[in-house]
Design a protein around this nucleic acid. Structure first.
Lengths: 173, 173
DNA sequence: CCTTGATAAGTGAGTAATCACTTTCTATTC
DNA sequence: GAATAGAAAGTGATTACTCACTTATCAAGG
């Protein structure tokens, strides 16, 4: 991965996130990245190829975020870290994550399967803690955590810390 | 609203929902609606005008759905009906709602304010039932219900009835 | 240490197709 | 008979992508 290649990806993330995939021209990406337009096609084949490179990056980053949760043995910590997940996203990463959420609607191929390891880890955790229906509790929490992430990114949540504590209380954490 | 005008709106909902707003050409909409392309501009001014007509429709439909909940006095019924909301969406309306959710990401002007009446009604309901933090409970449930709607539309939820009962149990309903 | 040569990285002008939108004209309706 | 509704054929601008070409990198051979 050369420097200009990295520039192209960063520019694409920024512009796709701001304007959407279809509304962003390869010309605009080239200008933002300060490279020739042809270079985009040399490295990524076509516009969709560039998009796929970004998606791959997103999947990798998500895996890295879920790893310490899935590997945790203490069930209380598994739940606590899951809840804290969306609140720990840094402001400078908002654009990146907004794009990932946007793509969930824009792409047909986008699947929910990436969350399965988390759902499984949560199911085990809820089971250990003696919850009545660990499977549903896990599904419930996963959906909710994704929703909190969305709300934060869209700027609907101005009382993040308060909400976070509120949820932690619900699970006696 | 003439018949062809209605055809244009229905075709636009279908294509915007499938491909996204930016990726749908006015030419494609005209073909789908079986009208001349110029007619779109006669009636809606420009492509964005057509989009706004669709958004207005969406806001109206949402208001109609929230009305019986907001008007309800029995606090248990307010919460019950809120929870049931996303599960009552008919299959034939999926395209329409998918577009509404998609637009939340695509448009900057799209605001969360439409949900305020529901949040307020829920706050009152939770207060009546003696919940510790009615305001947060209302915010929490609203975010969650929107997320359930998303999951259903995306096809992530194959155990809808089970999840619905699970949530109702959480609120002793 | 320099030349050679092969490959990858990068440029920028060019292209056909498509885009949102306009104009001109005809049919319908009150 | 004058709005209104509609069709058809345009418009210039923008699109994703190509292509011929230049530059950078770097290892092998003399």
């Amino acid at each position: 991965m050369t420097e200009k290649q990295e520039n192209i990806i960063q520019a694409a993330i920024k512009l796709f996130s701001e304007r959407g995939y279809a509304a962003t021209s390869t010309n605009a990406i080239a200008k933002e990245a300060a490279v020739s337009e042809g270079l985009i096609f040399r490295h990524f084949g076509n516009k969709e190829g560039l998009l796929h490179a970004i998606i791959k990056t997103g999947e990798e980053v998500l895996k890295q975020m879920l790893f310490p949760i899935v590997m945790e043995n203490d069930p209380k910590l598994v739940i606590k870290r899951t809840i804290e997940l969306p609140f720990d996203v840094k402001k400078e990463d908002y654009e990146f994550w907004k794009l990932q959420f946007k793509l969930k609607w824009e792409l047909k191929e986008y699947s929910h399967e990436k969350m399965f390891p988390l759902i499984n880890a949560l199911t085990v955790a809820f089971k250990k803690l003696g919850y009545d229906n660990p499977q549903l509790e896990a599904q419930y929490l996963t959906i909710y955590i994704e929703a909190i992430g969305e709300a934060i990114l869209k700027g609907y949540l101005n009382n993040g810390a308060e909400i976070k504590q509120f949820i932690l209380n619900k699970y006696d954490l």
